[in-house]
Amino acid sequence: MFSFIGRGIFYIFVGSITMGWKWWRYTAGALIVLVGIGYVALEFVPSIEPPANMRDADQGWGAEQV
């Protein structure tokens, strides 16, 4: 969840397990998979900068506490 690829793989996984035999379940799962593919594609676009919570900041857990 801390990179575009990780978030995209998560959405692809959730979308694939959401798909079912009914058309509305298949449509919802396909939309989630498409969002996941979009996140994976964002990793390879050099002009898109990841948000602050996805950057490599080696602060560890609880760094906001002093």
Rank of each mutant, 00 (worst) to 15 (best):
R55S: 10
D58L: 13
A30C: 15
V40R: 01
F13M: 02
I12H: 02
G20Y: 06
P46G: 04
I37A: 14
R25Y: 11
R25T: 14
F2P: 09
T27Q: 00
M19C: 14
G62Q: 02
L34V: 12
P51L: 01
R55L: 15
W24V: 11
K22R: 01
T18C: 10
V35D: 07
I32A: 04
L34K: 07
L31C: 12
G6A: 06
V40P: 04
R55P: 09
W21P: 00
A41K: 01
G8I: 09
V33D: 03
S16N: 10
Y11D: 08
D56Y: 12
L34F: 14
A28I: 13
I12L: 12
G36S: 03
F2D: 14
F4C: 01
N53A: 11
I32D: 01
F10R: 03
F13V: 04
V33T: 06
A57F: 07
A57K: 12
Q65K: 06
Y39H: 13
K22L: 14
W24C: 09
A63V: 06
G36D: 01
A57V: 11
G20T: 06
F2E: 15
M19R: 14
S16D: 11
S47I: 08
F44G: 05
V14A: 09
T18Q: 09
I17N: 00
E64N: 04
F44Y: 13
F10Y: 09
T27E: 00
W61T: 13
Y26Q: 02
W61P: 10
T18N: 02
L31M: 11
G15H: 03
D56S: 14
G36W: 01
Y26R: 05
G36V: 03
S3M: 03
L34E: 04
